[in-house]
């Protein structure tokens, strides 16, 4: 069970949060201009890597804010958290 440092509330137990999958997948501004393949890329394709991964998390049983987490999926170590819209830290 992780401890996650919510950028708005501070360190809390994982049970207060829900995961929202890979971060930094921006919804296309003009979906109608995209081919089926391009749209499918946005819609379905997600990384699932062993190692450092950028993820979205939501403090669903707390402040309900979404934010980003840099987590190593091989040992669950969380390297950093940052707010939506902020630049991701360099690896």
């Amino acid at each position: 069970m992780f401890l996650i440092n919510c950028p708005f509330c501070g360190e809390r137990d994982q049970s207060e949060f829900s995961s929202g999958g890979e971060a930094h997948i921006v919804r296309p501004k003009q979906p109608t201009e995209l081919s089926d393949d391009q749209w499918a890329e946005f819609l379905f394709m997600r990384k699932n890597i062993k190692g450092v991964q950028f993820e979205r998390w939501n403090h669903s049983h707390g402040c309900r804010k979404w934010f980003n987490v840099v987590r190593d999926t091989s040992n669950d170590k969380i390297h950093s958290v940052y707010k939506m819209g902020e630049k991701p830290p360099v690896k």
């Binding site: 919804r27 979404w66 939506m84 819209g85």
Partner: peptide, 13 residues
């Protein structure tokens, strides 16, 4: 509610 909040916070702030 969760879905609406998600879009408001992340896609259309």
């Amino acid at each position: 509610l969760g879905k609406l909040e998600d879009y408001l916070q992340t896609e259309w702030p």
